[in-house]
């Protein structure tokens, strides 16, 4: 009697643990890896305190937001090469408009920039959905267009913002200090809210659905074009937020094309390490955010270890390939056993 009931229960619990691991294992692993890296970093420098925590938290904000931006688009089955361009455009626009403005106005401009970026990228998503041109092609074009417009808005690095806006992202009106609260909130709240929205609302799930199989999603009543536009628009909003965060950190804008390309490439790497499958439908933006911080913290760690920065570049590329190869091998094995 007892064995008859307890065995299924135990099996049920084991299954649920397995399910949890399957669903959240990678994301949890990414964040554990981040903690391990930071723990390691503390042993490399003379003192690890509030200044260091603040530094890592605030400076990784743009990477986190851009990873979220790329993450949602990749989940929807696309890829946004223009995300870095939109970040640079938002950064340049915000810095150009905010310079010398009172705090309230800078906040309004920040909101307008984020909303504008969302609208703009939503339009990009619409173009992709309607024209059926591959995502890579359309967003390659927007990478050029966005950075070109950024150069028109702000021809050379400059501009500025208010101390209050800097405080909101960096915990200090000078952009540097030991108050890590605001930066940690700025990482955690948008990431968790966004992840909850993606996995718990109908609209969010429709984005997973079209990424997984857009034809099946269409047949089961998902409005494919609308989901695509939503994915690109929310992604655009986060790219805009990344631009505003950059403005707050540096108190200036920088329209250079290289920054856009670097932003896009880093966000792609973060998404991949974060466990979001290129091709869509699988993964969590929480993992992508963690991976964004990992790639960010690698550079102070490698610098502190005295590693040649060029070696660091090689290591980074090797790590990405290694992670992908391992994931690919496991997928292959699972595929064979099924």
């Amino acid at each position: 009697m007892s064995s008859e009931t307890s065995a299924p229960v135990r099996r049920g619990r084991a299954a649920s643990v397995r399910r949890w691991v399957r669903r959240r294992g990678w994301t949890a692993g990414v964040w554990l890896l981040l903690l391990a890296l930071i723990g390691w970093y503390t042993t490399l420098i003379p003192e690890f305190g509030e200044f260091e925590i603040t530094s890592i938290a605030k400076n990784s904000l743009p990477s986190v937001y851009l990873a979220l931006a790329q993450g949602v688009v990749v989940i929807s089955g696309g890829v946004d090469l223009g995300a870095g361009g939109l970040m640079v455009l938002s950064n340049s626009t915000a810095a150009a408009l905010m310079e010398g403005q009172p705090p309230e106005v800078t906040v309004l401009i920040a909101l307008a920039v984020v909303a504008g970026a969302a609208l703009l990228n939503g339009f990009v998503g619409w173009v992709i959905a309607v024209s059926r041109i591959p995502d890579i092609v359309v967003t390659l074009a927007t990478l050029f267009i966005f950075t070109g417009v950024a150069l028109m808005v702000l021809p050379s690095p400059g501009g500025g913002t208010s101390g209050q806006l800097r405080y909101a992202f960096t915990g200090s009106t000078t952009g540097i200090g030991t108050n890590f609260g605001p930066s940690l909130i700025a990482i955690a709240v948008p990431t968790l809210l966004f992840a909850a929205w993606l996995t718990r609302t109908r609209t969010g799930l429709s984005i997973y659905a079209i990424g997984s199989d857009d034809h099946a999603a269409y047949l089961s009543g998902v409005r494919v074009v609308r989901a695509k536009v939503t994915a690109y628009a929310t992604g655009g909003g986060f790219a805009g937020l990344a631009g505003v965060a950059l403005t707050a950190i540096a108190n200036s804008g920088d329209p250079r094309f290289d920054n856009a390309v670097n932003g896009t490439l880093n966000s792609l790497a973060a998404v991949v390490l974060g466990g979001i499958l290129l091709g869509g439908g699988v993964g969590s933006v929480v993992g992508a955010a963690g991976a964004g911080i990992i790639f960010f913290t690698l550079s102070p760690i490698l610098t502190a270890m005295g590693i040649d920065p060029n070696t660091a570049q090689v290591v980074r590329g090797g790590v990405i390939v290694a992670v992908m190869v391992v994931a690919g091998l496991l997928q292959l094995r699972r595929w064979r056993t099924q």
Partner: peptide, 15 residues
């Protein structure tokens, strides 16, 4: 860019 350089400099200060 400038924000990346700020973080590099902060890392060097920490060191």
């Amino acid at each position: 860019d400038a924000s990346g350089q700020i973080s590099d400099l902060e890392g060097l200060i920490s060191q």
